[in-house]
Design a protein around this nucleic acid. Structure first.
Lengths: 169, 169
DNA sequence: GGCGGCATGTAAATGGTTACATGATTAC
DNA sequence: GTAATCATGTAACCATTTACATGCCGCC
């Protein structure tokens, strides 16, 4: 018979947290929250009120484990990924169907409705959005790994060519 | 002195609801919920528990008004956009800075972390995601306006060329 | 007469948000 | 010694989600 183990589906925020843990090794909730807050994508605030409870939930599901670390003097709780957690993370990461979903794109959402205003206002919006996006492309934030820079760059370029096309019609 | 009127900033879900109202004219909460549920973007479920309270909030802010319509026999509450509401909607729609934000892209989120798995697995993921996206491009859902089809098409094409580039390296 | 769609909601749970509170340690 | 940072968390709030509850209407 098939396995009785329930699939441990991760939310996107949990997936992102596992990615941080995979990169930096065992980390405190504080460090994970900082990583969220410092990330260029402002989608999650990285607030303590979100991150601390999330790690506790993941622990209760057996996807992470704690190691009370008395690092010299200060007591801290370090979380590490368990085998079960690693499997859940990989399932999240390699879920191509979810990956190919629409997500939420603030530009797409607006572009869809631009015909509700005058052509002039619509074009002005697209021009401004293009300028903002090109600015993002120019000023790459510091502390970005090469891998992150590459994806960021490609994503912005795809968006820019889309905007240019929309403006050229 | 400047106006004392507080800016009525809309959430993205509220903006989307105003777009529906602008297109279909005065509508019931039910119709708006259906429009969310039927939309190809699965980002909001269009549940009654979200939509009915949202319209009540918008009404209490003076952005929509109700018209008790005794359409023949059945009683229903129709919401229409007020002048204040229209201004708030246009401010939301034409906010280029917000529009140029990152939002949440499930593909970008995963692509950023693909180096955490083997190159083989990474490529397989990208190939599957490409296949899913190309499938979306082929099977355009029915009941889509020309405008929606155009944006959808351009957005998917931009994503596909991004994926192809990622695979070609 | 019954089923599906229209239309109104509420209830409980979930999981975010901001803001606050506390204390230890490090850097100046 | 004091300010910033590390580190833990909680509290109140808010807007979602799923699921449930009710009832009317039109159609077969």
């Amino acid at each position: 018979m098939s396995s009785m183990v329930k699939k441990q589906l991760l939310t996107d925020m949990e997936g992102a947290a596992f990615a941080i843990l995979a990169r930096t090794g065992p980390s405190t909730s504080y460090a994970i929250a900082r990583a969220f807050a410092d990330s260029p994508s402002e989608y999650w605030s990285g607030s303590a009120g979100a991150v601390y409870p999330m790690l506790k939930r993941l622990k209760s599901r057996g996807l992470v484990a704690t190691k009370q670390s008395a690092d010299g003097k200060r007591a801290k709780i370090e979380y590490r990924v368990t085998v079960k957690g690693h499997a859940a993370f990989e399932a999240w990461l390699l879920d191509a169907k979810r990956g190919a979903g629409w997500g939420f794109d603030p530009l797409r959402a607006r572009a869809m409705e631009l015909d509700l205003v005058s052509a002039t206002k619509g074009r002005r919006f697209l021009q401004k959005a293009l300028a903002h996006t090109e600015a993002l492309l120019r000023e790459a934030p510091p502390n970005l790994h090469a891998r992150e820079r590459t994806i960021r760059h490609a994503w912005l370029k795809a968006r820019i060519s889309w905007l240019r096309e929309a403006l050229s019609t």
